[in-house]
């Protein structure tokens, strides 16, 4: 991972950003969802301890992403300045198209189906999971597309 995020000539800047985004999602949200599965919140809303845990998770995500992007820009200033070219744009469009399907499915589940069966933090966490999954899929497709056109 460090090699990929470092200034390797063959790795496009936008692939590095996608790897960083995957890392920034997995590091805080992995433990968050593991905790939520092992200790499902049962207190009525707003359930401040769960809200605090989610706040810490979100802030951690933003910090990893923000600091990581600043570090990448510092390591590869020339690449960071380049605008997205046609391949970058094609890859972004493909990633968004796939992630959109995931997000729509997640929205249908958490906005239409689940409210009839559950509520509270279970529903909120399902919605957060849908967003996180869509983001992981989006960045995963970006990484896969760049690697496929390199190897």
């Amino acid at each position: 991972m460090t090699n990929i995020l470092d200034s390797s000539e063959s790795v496009p800047f936008r692939e590095k950003v996608a790897w960083l985004s995957l890392l920034a999602m997995a590091v805080p949200y992995g433990p968050y969802f593991t905790w939520m599965v092992l200790h499902p919140p049962t207190a009525p809303l707003p359930d401040l301890p769960t809200m605090f845990l989610f706040g810490v998770t979100s802030i951690s995500h933003a910090l990893i992403l923000g600091l990581g992007r600043a570090w990448l820009r510092w390591r590869c200033p020339d690449d960071a300045r380049l605008p997205a070219d046609e391949r970058d744009q094609a890859i972004t469009l493909r990633a968004l198209a796939v992630a959109y399907q995931v997000l729509i499915l997640g929205t249908m589940l958490t906005g239409i189906v689940m409210p009839f069966q559950t509520g509270g933090w279970r529903l909120i966490n399902a919605a957060i999971a849908a967003i996180v999954l869509a983001e992981l899929v989006s960045n995963g497709v970006v990484v896969w597309s760049y690697r496929r056109s390199r190897s």
Partner: peptide, 18 residues
């Protein structure tokens, strides 16, 4: 107006340019 990685991909036949 493309990155060096895109040129490498075109050259290797991994990406068809516009």
């Amino acid at each position: 107006g493309v990155t060096r990685q895109t040129i490498a991909a075109i050259e290797a036949g991994k990406y068809s340019p516009s």
